[in-house]
């Protein structure tokens, strides 16, 4: 096992700043697809997901790592580069995995009426990210946007809970898109 070869950010302050801007653009403009710069690590999840973990997670954020990605390499990399303690779905601030491994959304912290921000952020690994999908409207979208979603019905239910609910990043390769709870979803 070549842990040393599994890198994080080369220049953490700069690389994380650029990655955050991509993540922020994605969540501020649902339906858009952002591209991040890859890192030199061979992991069981995408470069985009790895960069999001490096940018957002640390020892103060608990992480649920879905069983399909829970390899010794992944654990080592997370422990070394993020320090995020692994947690159950219910206790996790972040979760990473495929949709099938992460669902259902109700398993995660949804926030409270007083503190809706105390809710989980899911990083959902996708085979690909495309704009062929349901119609999205709401904050961050001038008129309408389209995005292929893993499970429209449960994401519509998530939106219906607003201001509670979880927020999603979709990741594939070096691409990131996002679906915050504020986005309204319509199936054509």
């Amino acid at each position: 096992m070549q842990i040393a070869a599994q890198r994080g950010f080369d220049m953490p302050a700069y690389d994380s700043a650029n990655a955050f801007r991509a993540a922020m653009s994605a969540i501020a403009r649902p339906g858009t697809i952002q591209t991040i710069a890859p890192i030199a690590a061979d992991l069981p999840f995408s470069q985009a997901a790895a960069v999001l973990l490096l940018t957002l997670c640390d020892h103060e954020t608990s992480l649920f790592l879905a069983p399909d990605l829970d390899t010794p390499e992944a654990r080592h990399w997370i422990a070394f580069h993020c320090g995020a303690p692994l947690a159950t779905k219910a206790d996790a601030m972040f979760a990473l995995g495929s949709w099938d491994a992460l669902a259902p959304l109700d398993d995660y912290a949804q926030g409270t009426p007083e503190y809706p921000d105390r809710s989980a952020t899911l990083i959902v690994e996708m085979p690909e990210i495309t704009q062929a999908g349901p119609r999205l409207t709401g904050p961050g979208i001038q008129t309408e946007a389209y995005l292929a979603l893993p499970d429209t019905a449960s994401l519509m239910a998530n939106h219906a809970k607003f201001p509670r609910g979880v927020d999603l990043f979709l990741t594939s390769g070096c691409q990131i898109a996002a679906l915050p709870r504020s986005t309204k979803i319509e199936v054509r």
């Binding site: 700043a17 955050f20 501020a28 809710s119 961050g140 607003f162 927020d167």
Partner: peptide, 24 residues
Amino acid sequence: NFAYLDEQTKRMIRRAILKGLAIP
């Protein structure tokens, strides 16, 4: 550090910004 704040602090602020954008 770049832009004064340490990286851990920036991550904490960035997480808050993302939640803020998700709940306008």
